[in-house]
Design a protein around this nucleic acid. Structure first.
Lengths: 229, 229
DNA sequence: CGTTATTTTCACAAATTCAACATAATTTTG
DNA sequence: CAAAATTATGTTGAATTTGTGAAAATAACG
């Protein structure tokens, strides 16, 4: 994986530099923001920020405010830096979706450890939205598909259909079942539209297209193994 | 359904309590074991353990060992707790039949989510209707048949017919009965078509074709044992 | 409103299945 | 043992089902 991007938001330049140095040394890419509005700009500019470290105490827009804003659009992990350890606005913070607290002063080791723990956790959460079988990876959240690592462009219906296949890999699916699950149940069109979509899917999947198998007189099935070659 | 029973194996009492608390809160029944041999005892004592959460690092008998032991007798889902995420003995683990990994530290949300995902999956597996007799295995969900482990290609009707035989193994079936159950009830054709299908089935089944036995003047029967050889 | 992409329908070709028939083989019965 | 009844087997054409390409309908977009 590429180096992960971390956004550090603090009004004190000294503190930003400190944090940046440690994280850079640990292999992360760090970008800085000196206040809340700057932070928000950067966050929406760069699409791939993996984590945000946010000072609570900042002039004008404070940490809570920034957190609240970001949480409206994103679930990116947020670590809060608090001045005193007894500054127990933490309850407020957890309600806002803060993932972790670090109280100043902190040791670099703690900082890095927390960051890594959080990113690991986040990665584990993401795994739930990822389906994999036979070299085909579907990221439901990102709504994209790769085959042997290469991205494949699928239309909406194609994506839904392939997802349904992967979610039921190894199970024979009748056309009726497919219609009920991939199409809205109030769809009363021709079931043969499935065939057309299967055809397009197969062609876009190249060799891996064979994984979608026809079960004559019945429907289709996504193979998990090369069962009979 | 009843509350599902989960076995948590870890040498650290603190960790066991932590896991137990979260799972109990989520509606599971949790039993604990502090080492591998204890775990195995409990597992064989209680017959209805639905899932095992297993720490990798334990004194004396480690997690891998416990896993290997259990896998000899049971397919119960196993989740491994690993200390570091880069502790990539995962390959080893998947070979042993580990269903999932969670790396410490983990959030309670992750733990519960994984447990539920696995149990859901396992439940679906159970739903899979598998018939077996005389080395012939029919997976109705996957709609495939193996004989002595080797896949056999059957047409739709052949599959239905063989399934009907297996579902009524050891019972003599008249042609009329077979027609009513395998063919649509509105079928009024020649009953002799059954003979043709039986013929094809027998030929595709090789030696095992003899298991479909003719009952003269009556119909057919699928043998469970080699009754008279 | 026109343009583009997506989805659905349609028509025909290709593949597969299946019932039916004819004939051979087997079993029962007298 | 022979005749009658029943089952086994090979073949075949019709019917069904699926694959495919293109046209028509629909939705998405600026």
């Amino acid at each position: 994986m590429d180096r992960m991007k971390i956004l550090v938001v603090d009004d004190e330049a000294r503190m930003r530099k400190l944090v940046k140095d440690f994280l850079t040394k640990s292999g992360y890419e760090v970008i800085e923001a000196e206040d809340g509005s700057h932070a928000l700009d950067l966050f929406y500019d760069q699409k791939d920020i993996a984590l945000i470290i946010l000072d609570v105490m900042m002039p004008k827009v404070d940490g809570w405010e920034v957190c609240r804003e970001i949480r409206q659009y994103s679930k990116v992990p947020i670590i809060m830096l608090t001045a005193k350890s007894d500054e127990r606005d933490e309850l407020q913070g957890f309600g806002l979706g803060v993932d972790e607290y670090i109280s100043k002063p902190f040791s670099p080791k703690i900082l890095v450890a927390r960051v890594e723990a959080i990113l690991r956790r986040a990665g584990q959460l993401d795994r739930e939205n990822i389906l994999e079988a036979g070299g085909i990876v579907i990221d439901k959240a990102a709504h994209n598909v790769t085959i042997d690592g290469k991205p494949v462009e699928l239309s909406y219906k194609e994506f839904e259909l392939l997802t349904y296949f992967l979610e039921n890999k190894g199970i024979a699916l009748s056309r009726e079942k497919i219609l009920n699950n991939v199409w809205n149940y109030d769809y009363f069109g021709d079931a043969r539209t499935i065939d057309t979509h299967v055809k397009k899917l197969r062609s876009k999947m190249g060799k891996k297209g064979d994984l979608i198998r026809t079960i004559w007189g019945m429907g289709y099935k996504f193979e998990t193994e090369n069962e009979s070659l």
